[in-house]
């Protein structure tokens, strides 16, 4: 069953076709990587899937709902309820501790629950760092907090934008292991990346070029390493 489906999606900025008649679908529970050089339309696609932008034309079905025509307020609701976001720059609220940063996500979603937030930090191995401010955490630790924050509300889809772009290899592996765990639990993952290694961790890679889907690669070795 498909969780996400893009049908003939185009996004045009003046003369520039950022996305040109793109068709993709992602099944429930699938782990998909989106690759492509800069300017290929990755960011535009990410914004549209993440309910932060609307296509110029075409349909975007998320969990059966067409989000391409929704108001931005409605999009905020959908993003909050269905999507967990992970960013390249980690993006934490600088004056809140790790656990508070996780709780911010709960706060906007439903109800802050410190116990649950601490558990989520435990999952990413940072329970004992819960009371630290972002400035007291390493980049890898910050990104793990962001993973904990993304999964805290049990989203149907985790959307990660270059999640390992600023990490060393050790931390990259920790994050990818976390993704693998989430995948096993049935969470759908879409990871936008430059990094072939990160793409190879996914089941399938969609390659974008000039706003079009250039090719799709099925990872034959998925789950074997």
């Amino acid at each position: 069953m498909s969780l996400l489906e893009l049908k003939n999606v185009s996004k045009i900025y003046g003369e520039l076709k950022a996305l040109d008649n793109v068709n993709i679908h992602v099944d429930q529970g699938e782990w998909v990587a989106i690759m492509g050089p800069s300017g290929s339309g990755k960011s535009t696609m990410m914004n549209i899937i993440g309910c932060m932008d609307k296509p110029t034309s075409g349909e975007v079905l998320l969990d059966g709902v067409d989000i391409s025509k929704e108001s931005s307020r409605k999009l905020t609701d959908i993003r909050r309820d269905k999507i967990g976001l992970i960013f390249q720059q980690f993006h934490m609220v600088g004056y809140l501790t790790a656990v508070e940063n996780v709780m911010v996500s709960q706060y906007y979603h439903s109800m802050p629950d410190e116990e649950e937030a601490l558990e989520a930090l435990g999952r990413v191995g940072l329970r004992e760092r819960a009371r630290h401010l972002p400035s007291q955490l390493s980049g890898g630790e910050q990104q793990r907090v962001c993973v904990a924050r993304a999964l805290i509300n049990h989203p149907e889809l985790i959307l990660a934008d270059e999640p390992t772009g600023n990490l060393d290899e050790a931390n990259e592996n920790i994050v990818l292991d976390l993704f693998a765990q989430l995948h096993k639990e049935g969470t759908t993952l879409i990871v936008v990346t430059h990094d072939p290694e990160v793409a190879e961790a996914a089941q399938r890679t969609i390659v974008l070029e000039h706003g079009r889907v250039a090719r799709e690669i099925i990872n034959e070795n998925f789950g074997k390493s």
């Binding site: 307020r73 905020t76 909050r80 976001l85 993006h91 609220v93 996500s105 924050r149």
Partner: peptide, 14 residues
């Protein structure tokens, strides 16, 4: 700005 953007991305309403 970034913090506000983040909050909105995390689902903060206006």
């Amino acid at each position: 700005r970034r913090e506000i953007g983040l909050r909105k991305a995390l689902g903060a309403s206006d």
